[in-house]
């Protein structure tokens, strides 16, 4: 009885100390990890949950430009000033391509 009780106490304390040690190790890992490594997949998910998109905020182009990459946005969509021009050019090219593949209606 005494030995069993001793083992029970020792086992509980060992498991508690063991997981305490593991928590400290995890803390050290996070403390000294480079910034980009500190953002775990869970915290990215958390950031996503609290992002404006998830609260139904309007997806406006300016937000996308700031959030992603201005130059990349311009590369794909052109400057807002020349947007209409680029769109019209695009439609002309598309029309020619369509005609090339499918023939004129």
């Amino acid at each position: 009885m005494n030995a069993s009780y001793f083992v029970l106490v020792a086992a509980v304390l060992t498991f508690a100390t063991g997981f305490f040690v593991a928590t400290i190790i995890w803390g050290i890992k996070m403390l000294l990890a480079p910034k980009e490594e500190r953002v775990s997949s869970k915290s990215v998910h958390l950031l996503h949950i609290f992002s404006p998109h998830c609260f139904g905020a309007s997806h406006n182009d300016n937000y996308s430009v700031d959030a992603v990459n201005k130059e990349l946005f311009r590369y794909y969509h052109g400057n807002s000033d020349s947007k209409s021009e680029s769109v019209s050019n695009e439609s002309v090219i598309n029309k020619e391509l369509y005609n090339y593949y499918h023939g004129k209606n």
């Binding site: 083992v7 020792a10 086992a11 060992t14 498991f15 063991g18 997981f19 040690v21 593991a22 928590t23 190790i25 995890w26 890992k29």
Partner: peptide
Amino acid sequence: PFLSIFLALFAEMGTFL
């Protein structure tokens, strides 16, 4: 750390029993 410690704790079964 958690996985390693978890396995190590179970591998102490003889030390307890």
